[in-house]
Amino acid sequence: MENLLIIILVLMIIAALAAIHAKDLISAVIAQGFVGYGLVICFFLLKAPELALVQIVLETVTLIIILAVIYDSSMKEIGEPIGKRDIVTYSLSFVLVALFLYYFNKAIVGLNPFGEHTLRMSEMYVKEVLELTGSANLVKGVLWDFRGLDTLGEATVLFTAAMSVLVILRISGKKHQLTKK
């Protein structure tokens, strides 16, 4: 189980690198889709069918929107001559990555290893959601009862996003007035 997840994760990392370095945007989008669907498989293996279902539809919608955006553009990735500044950026980011990994490695010593999670806040959720809320799907029970405010907030974020898209896609921001230029 753990080994299978490791293999999938390594593949996802490779796909992510491919997406970032792809020569044209279509292959980048497809590689990104690979990462997303890999995540769906991971969710299934980790016993989260709820998330797998949501992720698969959301990933599809995201892909559709990205494709709609790049549909009639030149899909070529911009040629990137490696200048002096780029070398600095690259070497700096590699140093940072190494540093972060080192400290992450040290920081997680002593935390619960994979699969040996203990319950604290959710112990009561697991035991009593069924009787208290009557929702057979524990995730939904937690989502709409104990953490209902989060969920309302998330719906609000979605509302905000719709309003923002309508704002951003207005053709002109100001009314034309003769007194102003």
Binding site: L51, M121, G141, E154, V157
Partner: peptide, 15 residues
Amino acid sequence: VVDPLPQTLVLTAAV
């Protein structure tokens, strides 16, 4: 069962 709380969080964060 596995911990339902992180799944709830991911559901929120995904949206």
